[in-house]
């Protein structure tokens, strides 16, 4: 069972093996052995070498033999994440428009189901735009979620122009005075130039109706992602104004350490985490809890 599901179920167990090794090494006066353990732990979380090195350097400068290195390490990691603050979603104008983007298979469509559930239960009226018109049956998948959450579903079917679907949805929300529009987009590899251009077009078209829309652009990153996650984020940021990350699939054993590199290098905060397949399994990002889970080992 993963730590996230344990936290979820309130069954938190302490996992001390690595920490014990770190402490043992420290009490034996062997700082470099302790640092090596820390390094391994962080590398295995997909944090990336550059970030690991910077964390380890800080740790070295702050740790004295008597200190609790694990506690210091936690503090350093939390600081890293808190450097880029997550802002509360403010519905400054209606409808508030959120665009959800990412590479293939990260869980965009499911996440949109969860977002629409979350906002519906906050009493918001939600419109969902079925903008993944490429993948076979993506429309049906999203429709299924909308039926579950009661969100209004706007689609032009498979193969339609995604920008036109988004335009329709925002237009509809404007005229019916809805609170929120969530736009699904097709999974696209960030290396595909014309697909990134298509994404820009979707956002351009929406901005014609509401100048500041989409107000939020959420990039969905799979917790399993390795160093390529940084390149994904960079390319998406080049193309569109990414405002936050949704880190999915944290119910497995992957730690999602790549978000450290992303927030450190690109300044994009993590906004939500996905911790299961059910509609309720979306949580606001909590740096302390995230670091706790990251440092756990099975």
């Amino acid at each position: 069972m993963s730590l996230f599901s344990q936290i979820k179920d309130g069954l938190r167990k302490s996992r001390e093996s690595v920490f014990k090794r770190i402490r043992d090494a420290l009490s034996g006066g062997d700082l470099s052995a302790a640092i090596e353990e820390v390094e391994e732990l962080l590398i295995l979380s997909d944090m990336g070498m550059e970030t690991v090195e910077s964390v380890v350097d800080t740790l070295r400068s702050r740790t004295k033999r008597s200190d609790n290195a694990v506690q210091v390490l936690k503090e350093i990691l939390v600081e890293h994440l808190k450097e880029v603050e997550t802002s509360e979603t403010i519905f400054s104008e209606l409808p508030h428009v959120i665009s959800v983007v990412g590479v293939n298979g990260t869980g965009k469509t499911t996440t949109i189901g969860k977002l629409s559930k979350m906002y519906s239960s906050l009493g918001k009226s939600v419109v969902v735009a079925s903008g993944d018109t490429f993948r076979a049956a993506a429309v049906e998948q999203l429709k299924h979620w909308c039926e579950q959450t009661g969100a209004e579903f706007i689609s032009q079917g498979h193969g339609a122009d995604a920008a036109s679907v988004a335009f329709d949805a925002v237009n509809h929300a404007l005229s019916k005075k809805k609170d929120l529009v969530i736009i699904d987009t097709a999974g696209r590899l960030h290396t595909r130039h014309n697909l990134m251009e298509e994404l820009k077009k979707i956002h351009r078209v929406v901005a014609r109706l509401i100048e500041d829309a989409p107000h939020e652009v959420l990039l969905v990153i799979d917790a399993n992602t390795g160093q390529n996650g940084l390149m994904q984020a960079r390319k998406f940021l080049d193309a569109v104004r990414v405002t936050g990350i949704i880190l999915t699939k944290l119910d497995g054993t992957a730690k999602g350490g790549i978000v450290f590199a992303i927030s450190r290098e690109l300044g994009i905060p993590v906004k939500y985490i996905g911790i299961g397949e059910k509609l309720e399994d979306l949580r606001p990002f909590d740096p302390e809890m995230f670091v706790e889970a990251l440092l756990s080992t099975d």
């Binding site: 590398i43 295995l44 979380s45 997909d46 590479v103 298979g105 799979d222 399993n224 992602t225 390795g226 160093q227 390529n228 996650g229 994904q232 497995g252 054993t253 992957a254 730690k255 350490g257 790549i258």
Partner: peptide
């Protein structure tokens, strides 16, 4: 997935 990181070996 080719983009997978360190945890790929676990699964």
């Amino acid at each position: 997935d080719s983009m997978m990181g360190q945890d790929a070996v676990t699964s």
